[in-house]
Amino acid sequence: MTDKNSQSQQRTGLGALAGAGEADDFSVIDAIGGPRGVIESMLPGVVFVVLFVATSNLNLTIGVSAVLAVLQVIVRLIQRQSVMGALSGLIAVAICLIWAWQTHEARNYYIYGFLTNAVYIVLLSVSLLARVPGLGLMVEFIRTMPTEHLKAWFADWMGDKELKRAYMIITGLWVGLFALRLIVQVPLYLSNHVAALGVARLVMGIPFWALAIWVSYLIIATPMHRHKMRARESEAAAASTNSTNPMNPTEE
């Protein structure tokens, strides 16, 4: 049987935040996939921008980047490790490479990133306007995996004002992150500064992602811990009440 703490430590991204109320040894490196995950995430982008700047050969750059992305998945398959992260990365890289190849412009490698950031901004902003923090929805869903009693699940964490406020704050934080990426990178795209755009994309990728996760953890850890403690106290009180008042048909 796997220990709950070990499970939370194995989670990455928002999954790592789902265990924030209990993880005393929260690790940003683990949350972003560990050293290997960081390297695998950044390597295709690094190779693309360095090779294109060095050779100005878009077809060569695309070919090498594609082979590298496929090799990452193959290595994980050979080592019998989880390939879900590598596969999702491969799909994203494939979309970027195909876009650049079809348009014959290296800068279009980054359009997919612009679109995903814009979608995140819209969805999270709408959730803030609706007073239902999008990050809260995702983290709480991952944390509890509700399969029934969805209304009770929703009311449980939304009714905790401190926890909801924390989720509102980090949702706004992530909207700011995605918006900052577009503010910095879109002008570089429009001016066709591929090298500068590639560097900005790398700097504002994993490092910013790690910073956002760390700050989010600092904001939600205490409210989530208190929420979990209250839930356990309520469960213990209910169990105590049931044990002191058993349904015993032999009692008069």
Rank of each mutant, 00 (worst) to 15 (best):
N5G: 13
Q7T: 08
R11C: 00
T12Y: 12
G13Y: 06
L14S: 01
L14T: 00
L14F: 14
G15Y: 05
L17W: 00
G19F: 03
G19N: 07
A20Q: 13
F26S: 03
S27V: 10
V28K: 14
A31Q: 01
I32G: 08
G33M: 11
R36C: 09
E40W: 00
L43P: 01
V46K: 03
V47R: 11
V47D: 02
V47K: 10
L51M: 14
L51G: 13
F52Y: 15
V53S: 15
A54V: 13
A54W: 13
T55F: 06
S56K: 14
N57I: 08
L58Y: 08
L58T: 05
N59C: 03
I62H: 04
G63M: 05
G63E: 03
A66D: 01
V70K: 12
L71N: 09
Q72D: 07
V75H: 06
R76V: 05
L77W: 02
I78K: 10
I78Y: 02
G89A: 10
L90G: 15
A92L: 13
A92Q: 12
V93S: 01
W99T: 12
Q102C: 05
E105A: 01
R107D: 12
N108T: 04
Y109I: 09
Y109L: 05
Y110H: 13
Y112H: 11
F114K: 00
L115M: 14
A118I: 07
A118K: 02
V119G: 06
V122Q: 00
L124W: 14
S127G: 06
L128N: 04
L128R: 07
A130V: 15
R131K: 15
P133R: 03
L135I: 01
L135V: 04
G136R: 05
E140R: 08
R143W: 01
R143S: 01
P146W: 04
T147W: 09
T147R: 07
T147E: 14
E148F: 01
H149C: 05
H149I: 00
L150W: 15
K151I: 03
W153K: 00
F154I: 07
F154S: 13
F154V: 10
G159S: 02
K161N: 08
E162Q: 07
E162C: 09
L163K: 12
R165C: 00
M168W: 06
T171V: 00
G172A: 07
V175K: 02
L177F: 04
L177I: 04
L177D: 06
F178C: 07
A179L: 13
A179E: 02
R181I: 05
R181G: 11
L182V: 02
L188I: 10
L190K: 15
S191K: 07
A195F: 12
G198L: 06
G198V: 08
V199H: 14
R201D: 14
V203G: 09
M204K: 04
G205Q: 03
L211V: 14
A212D: 12
I213V: 02
V215R: 01
S216C: 08
L218W: 02
L218K: 11
I219C: 04
I220P: 00
A221F: 14
A221T: 15
H227E: 10
H227C: 00
H227F: 05
M229E: 14
A236P: 07
A237I: 12
A238T: 15
A239R: 12
T241R: 09
M247C: 09
